[in-house]
Every structure is written in C-alpha cells, then in structure tokens.
Computed example of a mutant assay.
Amino acid sequence: MKPYAVQFILFLTLCALSNSVCAQLTWQEQQSLKKENEGLKAPFKGITTNGTIQEGLFKLYSTGVTTEPVRNAAVAFLESLDDAQREKTKFSIDDDEWRKWMNQDYYVRQGVGFIEMSEKQRKAAFDLIGASLSAKGLKLSQDIMKLNYTLGEISGNMERYGEWRYWITIMGEPSETEPWGWQMEGHHLIINYFVLRDQVVMTPLFVGSEPVIADIGKYKGVSILQDEQDSGLKMLRALNDEQKSKAIIAPSTAGNNVLTAAWSDNVILDYAGIKASSFTRAQKDQLLLLIQLYVDHMDDGHAKVKMDEVQKYIDDTWFAWIGGSGDDAVYYYRIHSPVIIIEFDHQKPLGTKKLYGNDVHRQHIHAVVRTPNGNDYGKDLLRQHYLEHPQEHK
C-alpha cells in the first residue's frame, strides 16, 4: 500500500475519533478525503443505461498499431526521476488510483508534479504524452496548462492555479505484453491511458478551461475546444425541425450539466434525445465528424481503431441537446452509444466572473469522453486478460 494511502486511512480513523484532529487537516485534504471515500464506496462497474452491462462489446485482439513508442517513452520518463519521485509515481495496474481523479483545482494529487520536475524531466513527461496522443492531443494538453496559468493571472492566485500544477502516475510496469498505463491529472485536464499489448483505451478523458480563450497575459491568443463547440452547433442545425424537437431535451441551460465527470464510474445514464438510426447518411456523417474531433486526441492509429468501433454502433448512437441554437448561444450536448459517451458543456463562471459576468458563458467549458459498459480505464480488457491469465490476478 502506498504511503499516502496509509496516511489517508489514518486520517479517517483519527477523524472518526477526534474532531480536533480532523480540524487540523487543510480544507483541501478534508474535501479530497470526503470525495474519495464517497466515490470509492462501490467497486468499479462502469457506466450503464439501466444498471446492466451490455456484454461482448470489447474484445482482446491485435489492432496492428504499435504501442512501442509509448512504452519506450514511459521507461525514459521513469528513468528521468529520482528514487523518491519514482516511488510515489508508480502504482499497480489494478490500483484504485486510476479512479482517484477530479477536475477541481483543490484536489490532492498523487504522482510526480510538473511543478517539481526539472526541465529534463518535463521534457520526458511531454515526450510520454506526445508518444501516446496525436499532435492535436498534445497541443490541447499543453494549451489547457497554459490557460490555467492565465486563470492564475486573472485571479491573482498562482498558488492555486498555474501552468505546472499537473501530475503524472504510472500504473503497472511499461511492458510489451502485460497491461500497464499512465494517468495525468490536474485542473481541467485528466488523461487516463491504458495499454494492453497493442490495444489502447484513453478514457476517462476530461478537458476544459476557464478561460477558454486567453484575452490577456503571457499566453494571450491561446484558445481551445472551438471546433468542438462550433461543430456541436453545426450538428444541431443539420437536423430538421422534427428531429430538433426530439434532440433538444431542454430549451435553456443553467450550466454544469455534465453527468459523467469525477466519481461517476458507475452512473446509470439512459439514452436521451434523438437516435441516429433516424438520420440521413449526411447527418450520420456529420455526427461521425463531431465524434472524431474528440477521438482524434489519440494517436492516429488508435484513433482509427476507435472510430471503426464507433461507426459499428452509429445507428445505436443518441444525440441530446440543452440550450439555444443562436450564433452566440450557450449549450450542452451529449453523444451516447454503447461504446462511447461524449459530453460538452458551457459552464457557469467561477474564476472569471469579474471579466465575463455571472451568467453561463463560452469562456468556461467542460468536455468529457467515456467508454461505457465497463471499459473505462481499460477495465473490461483487463478483466478478460485476467481470465486468460488467472495467475496474474491475486
């Protein structure tokens, strides 16, 4: 058991015995403990529509897309760390650490932080991210980090925000044949990357920012998620009036509609909106292009593998919308099939109220990608691997 886990269990025990001890924890530590304990009460099952996993969706097979560059980059990253950093960065492949992520900036992170890395170590970390993701995915990750610096400039609080307040953990041993993976997490950026031979699962993925476009400061001009925003609206506008009446499940948004963010591993989320089986070929193609904007954060080869899987279930894919459809509208949309969930949401303002006002606006976005039916974090592939190799699962 990792030292932090022992400490957290001790904290809980002491808090149960003494309110004064609990009061000595920082608010950040208390909130982290509370969220973790609530979130991990139930073992992982996966997101479902009715509480029952739809079986047979995910198979162990060779994709033909090498993961060797990712493994090499992970080995190089671990070798760049000193012994103490390496110790706190490595977890077992089936550790609950996979599930211990949260978007909020106050969450207590594990692993090694960019804020404590040398320039050489940061380069090795970005090499790992770059080997795993597409160029687009790497740029998005780095731009989110930069925009978190912008939020620090706006709020005047670089202790709370900043470009380097992101952490990396490695699950299992980087291997050609055995399951392993890595996780990056921090404010508005969580990447879970599971590897089994040449298969990859890159969910849960959480991306976003406040602000979304830097109007001031060191990184003025940096922007993210504009294509995902605009293409979502384009998808709604591609529907006829009857289709729109089914897709729009609420006419306006109050913000904060995301249902599959942190601690939602087992949420029951039924299909909503309109089913793509009723779409024309052109509308289905439009929906696939929208989905691909999110999937293309993976490296090109594994993105194609995932899109083939998505296309297989396109007629069982649903599109739901909350909000308006004007040029400057704020809105939420969800794409939901047996093999993928995507949520996009214009959020209520928090750190940018003094610049952009109190209403829901386009300068605060959350987006989440999930693999429902038990394969977030590659859990279903890992389960099947253990069935084939029971001696590895103790």
Rank of each mutant, 00 (worst) to 15 (best):
Y356H: 11
Y356Q: 07
Y356K: 06
G357I: 07
G357F: 10
N358C: 08
N358D: 14
N358E: 15
N358V: 13
N358H: 11
D359N: 15
D359Y: 10
D359S: 14
D359E: 15
V360F: 06
V360Y: 07
V360S: 05
V360K: 08
H361W: 09
H361R: 07
H361Y: 09
Q363N: 15
H364I: 05
H364R: 13
H364Q: 09
H364L: 03
H364P: 06
H364K: 11
H364D: 03
H364C: 07
I365D: 02
I365P: 08
I365Y: 11
I365M: 11
I365S: 10
H366T: 04
H366D: 02
H366M: 04
A367S: 15
A367L: 13
A367P: 01
A367I: 04
V368P: 05
V368Y: 01
V369F: 05
V369H: 00
R370F: 02
R370T: 00
T371W: 02
T371D: 07
T371P: 05
P372F: 05
P372G: 07
P372W: 08
P372L: 03
P372E: 03
P372D: 02
N373R: 09
N373W: 08
N373C: 10
N373F: 07
N373H: 14
N373S: 08
G374W: 09
G374K: 08
G374D: 05
G374H: 05
N375V: 00
N375K: 02
N375G: 00
N375C: 01
D376K: 06
D376E: 01
Y377R: 00
Y377T: 04
Y377H: 01
Y377A: 02
G378E: 01
G378D: 02
G378N: 01
G378M: 04
G378C: 01
G378F: 04
G378A: 00
K379C: 11
K379M: 15
D380W: 11
L381A: 00
L382E: 06
L382V: 05
L382K: 07
L382M: 12
L382A: 06
L382H: 04
L382R: 09
R383I: 01
R383N: 09
R383K: 14
R383V: 05
R383G: 05
Q384E: 10
Q384G: 05
Q384K: 12
Q384F: 04
H385T: 10
H385W: 15
H385E: 09
H385Q: 12
H385V: 06
H385M: 13
Y386F: 15
Y386D: 11
Y386Q: 14
Y386M: 12
Y386S: 13
Y386E: 12
L387H: 13
L387N: 11
L387F: 12
L387V: 14
E388A: 15
H389A: 09
H389N: 15
H389E: 11
H389R: 13
H389Q: 12
H389C: 10
P390Y: 14
P390G: 06
P390C: 09
Q391D: 14
Q391W: 10
